[in-house]
Design a binder for these strands. Structure first.
Length: 405
RNA sequence: GGAGGGGUUCCCGAGUGGCCAAAGGGGGCAGACUGUAAAUCUGUUGUCGACGACUUCGAUGGUUCGAAUCCAUCUCCCUCCA
């Protein structure tokens, strides 16, 4: 079974420039391909992770990945699919983010020698000379055609700066550069990258007469079409300092029924017949599939150790008892005289204001040791702690353990 | 450079002197129902020493008993003209 078929079967593929030719090429030889990551934040998130999964599938099949860090394109900002102007980032931030991306990618992709390459387009984009670039690359683009591109639609209504309008040229040029340097013949990306990709393919053909391919993948969305991986605190990050392994696990454990099969296919390496078997579960049984999903994805991202811990903590909580819950250290002295319960919730970070605490309590969402508390003046004392630990609960699913020091 | 329109709470968006801590929707949180799901329904959604007080409607000053609303200056954004 070729990689193309694997990717297709697992449901990654959305659009392809030349399906038959690409399929043949991938079967015949090792192909160098690239995926670009713009350093828009200080950590990758699950959206990027789908791309990483594809890279791994490709690498397993003997192809050579190039991870392209957007140290240059990040200075311009991709307007695709956005309705507002991206905030401009400083060069320092961009370089810092690139460094972090690189470290994270190295956890999933084996770099080195002929296996995989990591490059930064700052190396060539920042050096570009304006006139030269306009003459070589700019002349190949038709503004008329660019304006009709889907990716600018949203922006034409609200305004699009010339800076961002150029993004497409930058990315197309990247592809050309990689084609020339590494004989990179294929660019992969999320489906929102389609127009950026096909323009790169075109550019290679026009300037070098070369044959290049583009392939895009489904964006990770819920069955309702919403972007996935959004939590109240923002994106679902790969960096465990931004999203703890527990929260990460929790997200997948609580996912919508109808998204289970899709996520298993895209985010794990489980064989497809297994994926389909799990995805077919109905009613309460589908919870088993969600456990598998949460465990597998967490294992890939945070390691087996963390995945086990998260799974145990989750189980322990819902079947009563302790387990490993997000915890916080607090001074023993604070409780010596008793601490007001709302103050304690605030200190533990479960609420952001006392007003919120009051509402929470009025609506019956405050529990200490499984006892619902309805008294604003209730105090927690050292007697409430067992072995210096006490679990505060907010609603049904949010917990925080106080650890005395 | 000229003319016009606009910046309201987490987001979108009403409000054009007191009835405004500010409609409505989205999102969030909690409750009911469930399967730790979805959908649905209910409540809630500025802060605090809480039947009260304090701080919010781009910024700073001003008019007024009283300003998100009126005036001045500044600032940012958008549209059209050149």
């Amino acid at each position: 079974m070729s990689v193309y078929d694997i990717l297709a079967e697992r449901g990654y593929i959305e659009q392809c420039t030349h399906e038959a030719e690409l399929r043949e090429l991938l079967e015949k030889q090792s192909v160098t391909f690239y995926i670009g990551f713009d350093p828009t934040a200080d950590s990758l998130h699950v959206g990027h992770y789908v791309q990483v999964m594809v890279m791994r599938h490709m690498q397993n099949a003997g192809h050579r990945p190039i991870a392209l860090l957007g140290g240059g394109t990040g200075m311009v900002g991709d307007p695709s699919g956005r309705t507002d102007l991206r905030q401009m980032m400083t060069v320092d931030t961009i370089d810092e983010n690139c460094g972090r991306f690189k470290n994270q990618l190295a956890r999933f992709i084996e770099f080195g020698e002929d296996k995989a390459i990591c490059v930064n387009n700052a190396d060539w984009l920042r050096e570009l000379r304006y006139i030269d670039f306009l003459r070589e690359v700019g002349s190949q683009f038709s503004v008329n055609r660019m304006l009709t591109a889907e990716c600018f639609k949203a922006r034409l209504e609200h305004g699009l700066s010339f800076l961002e309008f150029n993004y497409m040229l930058m990315q197309s040029y990247d592809f050309l550069e990689l084609y020339r340097r590494y004989n990179c013949q294929l660019q992969l990306g999320g489906n929102d990258q389609w127009s950026n990709i096909i323009n790169g393919v075109d550019l290679i053909r026009r300037l070098d007469g070369g044959q290049a391919f583009g392939l895009t993948f489904k964006l990770l969305t819920t069955s309702a079409g919403q972007k996935m991986g959004k939590t109240a605190k923002g994106a679902l990050w790969i960096d465990e300092r931004k999203t703890t392994p527990y929260d990460f696990y929790h997200y997948w454990r609580n996912i919508d029924d109808s998204d289970v099969e899709n996520c298993l296919a895209l985010l794990t390496f489980l064989p497809m017949d297994e994926v389909r078997r799990l995805g077919a579960y109905k009613d309460a049984k589908i919870n088993e599939a969600k456990e598998v999903l949460a465990y597998e994805v967490t294992k890939q991202v945070h390691g087996e150790e963390n995945a086990k811990k998260a799974a145990e903590a989750e189980k322990a909580l819902f079947s009563k008892g302790g387990g490993e819950v997000p915890s916080i250290e607090m001074e023993r002295s604070g409780f010596a005289e008793g601490m007001n319960i709302i103050d304690a919730y605030l200190a533990a970070g479960l609420i952001t204001s006392k007003g919120e605490g009051r509402r929470l309590m009025e609506q019956g969402g405050v529990y200490v040791k499984d006892q619902q508390i309805k008294d604003f003046t209730h105090c927690l004392t050292l007697d409430d702690f067992e072995e210096d630990k006490l679990i505060l609960r907010k609603g049904k699913k949010t917990f925080k353990q106080i650890h005395l020091k």
